[in-house]
Design a protein around this nucleic acid. Structure first.
Lengths: 247, 247
DNA sequence: GAGTGGTCTAGACCACGAG
DNA sequence: TCGTGGTCTAGACCACTCA
C-alpha cells in the first residue's frame, strides 16, 4: 500500500550518505556532478536531485562555481535557550552572535503581532548567530519605542534574542507571559541566503510575543532556524490537577 | 547581495497562485501540465517545478493519472489543543478522527524516548485525523503496558492524542509534566503518503513525553503535522522572577 | 485506449570561482 | 581560461485513472 520510493536519485542519495559517513570528512569536496553522472550512469538532473536531498538534510553545502562540500555538523540550536533542562542549551553557548539594531515602522504584520497601529515606531534588533562559521539562527526582536528605549547592545549571550527580556526588566518592564507560535515551512529566498541553506530545506519559524501584566505587548520576536539543526523544546507543568501535597 | 529569484518557474508559480486566488475554486482541476507548457512557452520540468512549489505551500494536490487540483483549504491544526487561548483550538474540533491501537515492542527510539528497556511491551494508539476528507495529522501515542492498560477507545475528541492523558488520570496515573520537542523537517515516504503531501512539503514533528511526579515516563507521543496547515502554540507564564538581588 | 502525471535522458547555455 | 554548479530544453518511456 505504501509506495516504497525506488527512484534512482534515492539510491544515489543513499550511496552518498554512506560515503559521507565513511570516507569523507567535514569540509571535503564531493566529486563533481559530472563525475557522479558517469559513476552512477545517470544524467545530471538525477544526480542533482540526489544532491538536493542531502542538502535539505543538512549533510552538504553547495557552492556555485566551487563544488559540493560535506557540511560541518554541530549540535542543535535549542529554543528556548533558558528554562530548559541544563544540557539542552549547551550548544547555544558555542555560537558567535552579532546584534545590530535600527528603528523601523511597523508594517501590517508587525502591527498585528504587537497589537499597535501601523507605522508605529519600533526598535528592531537583529540577532545573527554562527556556529563554526555557519549561520544557524536569525532572530528579529521588536520593541515599541513607547515601551522602552533600550541601549544598543553590542553582543549577546543568546542567539535567540531572549536576553531582551532581561533588558526590559532593567527598564522596569515586567513580562507576565510569553506565547510562542511555532511553524514549519520552506524558507523564502532571503532566509535561504542568510542561513546558507537550500531553498527546500525546512525551517522552524517561531513567533514569540511577550506581554506584561496588563496585557500590553512589550516585545515580539520573529525567529528562523534551519530545521535540520534546530529544535524547540517546551516544558509544560500540569497546572491545577490536584496532586497531593508537594513539598 | 541577496539574489532575487528570477527563475522561470518562480514566475509561473506566481501566475498560478494568482489564478488560483481569482478564477479557480477549491477542488477545481488545473490545466494539464502539457497545456501549461504551451501556455507559458516552457518545457515540462519547468512547469513541474512551479507546480511542486504550489504543492509544498499546500495550494494544490497532485494526483497521478488524474490531474492537479486546487486544494481544499481549512484553518490550521493547533498544537497543543487545550490550555490555549480559546479560539485557537476551534479548527481542531472540525475534524474526523479515527483511532486504532495495537501492542508493540519498544524499538531503540521508543526505548530512549520512554526510558524503558528495548523490547518493552507498549500499547500504541494511532490517531489519524481528517479535515474535509484531507488527512491533517498523524499521532502515535505510546503507553507502557506496565503503566496502564487503557481500554481501547474507538473515537476521540482530539486529533493530537492528548486525551490519553485524561484517560491515564482515570487509571490513577497523574501526569506532573509534559515536555514537547518540536522540529521542522521534510517527511519520509510513508508520512508523505499518509498525509497526502508532497515529498518536499515541510512537516512539523512533535515529540511529547509525559512524566509523573516520580519522573517516570507514562506516555510518549510522536506527532506529525503538515507544515502549511499546522502550528504549535505554547504559552509560558513567567514563573516567579524574583527581582531583588539581581542587578 | 486516451489522457494524465512520474521519472529520466542527453544535451545546451549561463553565472560563478579560482588560477 | 577552465571547471564548477544553476537553469532549461525537447524529447522519451512508464504507471495510473477513467471512460
Amino acid at each position: 500500500m505504501i509506495p516504497i520510493a525506488s527512484n534512482r536519485y534515492t539510491r544515489i542519495a543513499d550511496d552518498l550518505r554512506h560515503r559521507i559517513a565513511t570516507e569523507f570528512s567535514a569540509g571535503d569536496r564531493l566529486p563533481a556532478e559530472t563525475e557522479l553522472m558517469t559513476l552512477h550512469g545517470v544524467s545530471r538532473p538525477t544526480v542533482r536531485e540526489a544532491l538536493a536531498t542531502l542538502e535539505n538534510e543538512g549533510l552538504i553545502v553547495r557552492h556555485h562555481g566551487r563544488g559540493n562540500f560535506v557540511r560541518q555538523t554541530f549540535g542543535q540550536v535549542t529554543y528556548p535557550a533558558d528554562g530548559m533542562a541544563d544540557g539542552q542549551a549547551a550548544v547555544n553557548a558555542a555560537v558567535d552572535i552579532s546584534v545590530s539594531h535600527s528603528e523601523v515602522q511597523a508594517n501590517a504584520r508587525l502591527a498585528a503581532l504587537l497589537r499597535v497601529a501601523p507605522a508605529t515606531r519600533l526598535t528592531e534588533y537583529v540577532y545573527l548567530s554562527h556556529c563554526m562559521a555557519i549561520p544557524c539562527s536569525v532572530a528579529r526582536v521588536y520593541v515599541p519605542c513607547s515601551v522602552a528605549d533600550i541601549e544598543p547592545l553590542g553582543s549577546s549571550r543568546s542567539p535567540l534574542g531572549d536576553d531582551i527580556q532581561d533588558r526590559l526588566s532593567e527598564y522596569g518592564v515586567e513580562i507576565a507571559e510569553t506565547v510562542s507560535r511555532v511553524t514549519a515551512r520552506l524558507p523564502d529566498a532571503e532566509e535561504a541566503w542568510t542561513l546558507r541553506i537550500g531553498a527546500r530545506t525546512a525551517v522552524l519559524a517561531v513567533e514569540r510575543v511577550s506581554t506584561d501584566a496588563s496585557g500590553r505587548v512589550v516585545e515580539a520576536t520573529l525567529l528562523v532556524l534551519p530545521g535540520h539543526s534546530s529544535q524547540a523544546v517546551f516544558a509544560v507543568p500540569v497546572p491545577a490537577r490536584d496532586l497531593e501535597g508537594t513539598g
